[in-house]
Amino acid sequence: MITPAFAQQFAHDWLNAWNSHDLEAILSHYADDSLFTSPYVVLLADEPSGVLHGKAALRNYWHKGLQRIPDLHFDLSDVLIGIDSLTLYYRGHNGMVAETFVFNASGLVQQAMACYALPTSD
């Protein structure tokens, strides 16, 4: 079960890794056989399913993302915890993001799903 202390530490470490643009620190949170889903996978990784399998695919995808957005910064709004998962709600470069992480028995991310706020129309 996810504890509040684990959730807060994960959120802190994960955000610091991203905000430092430290790809290896980011990847250190993920299992080698992790699964990641995001609508941006379709655009950046040219993967129509929106799904990436494994750390090598994540490395390539996030490397491209960090190059495309050199000033990328995330601001945490909230941390939500579940049984074997947690969700970070944060402001990204295009608005609000809810990213849910499911953890394996070793405390590494086995699966992550990113959802993005719809663009507002004026």
Rank of each mutant, 00 (worst) to 15 (best):
T3P: 08
P4E: 14
P4N: 13
F6P: 05
Q8H: 13
Q8Y: 05
Q8S: 14
Q9F: 03
Q9S: 09
Q9P: 02
Q9H: 09
F10A: 03
A11M: 09
W14T: 05
W14V: 07
L15C: 10
N16I: 05
N16S: 12
N16C: 07
A17L: 07
A17K: 06
S20A: 15
D22T: 07
L23K: 04
L23G: 04
A25N: 05
I26N: 01
I26G: 02
I26P: 00
L27Q: 01
H29P: 01
Y30R: 00
A31P: 00
D32H: 06
D33C: 05
S34C: 14
L35N: 03
L35G: 02
L35V: 11
F36E: 01
F36D: 01
S38A: 10
P39I: 08
Y40W: 12
V42C: 06
L43D: 08
L43G: 06
L44V: 08
L44C: 00
D46A: 13
E47Y: 03
P48N: 09
S49G: 11
V51R: 13
L52I: 07
L52P: 00
G54N: 04
L58I: 04
L58T: 00
L58R: 02
L58W: 01
R59A: 08
N60T: 13
Y61S: 05
W62E: 01
H63R: 10
G65A: 08
L66S: 08
Q67R: 10
R68I: 09
R68E: 13
P70T: 11
H73D: 08
D75S: 14
V79N: 03
L80R: 14
I81Q: 08
I81H: 05
I81P: 05
I83R: 14
D84G: 10
D84A: 14
L86P: 02
L86K: 02
T87I: 14
T87Q: 14
Y90M: 11
R91F: 13
R91W: 12
G92K: 02
G92L: 06
G92Y: 02
H93P: 12
V97E: 04
E99Q: 15
T100I: 11
F101G: 02
V102H: 15
V102R: 14
F103V: 01
F103I: 03
A105V: 13
A105G: 09
A105P: 11
L108I: 06
L108S: 05
V109H: 00
V109W: 01
Q110E: 15
Q111P: 07
A112K: 04
M113T: 14
A117D: 09
A117L: 07
A117G: 10
L118F: 05
D122C: 02
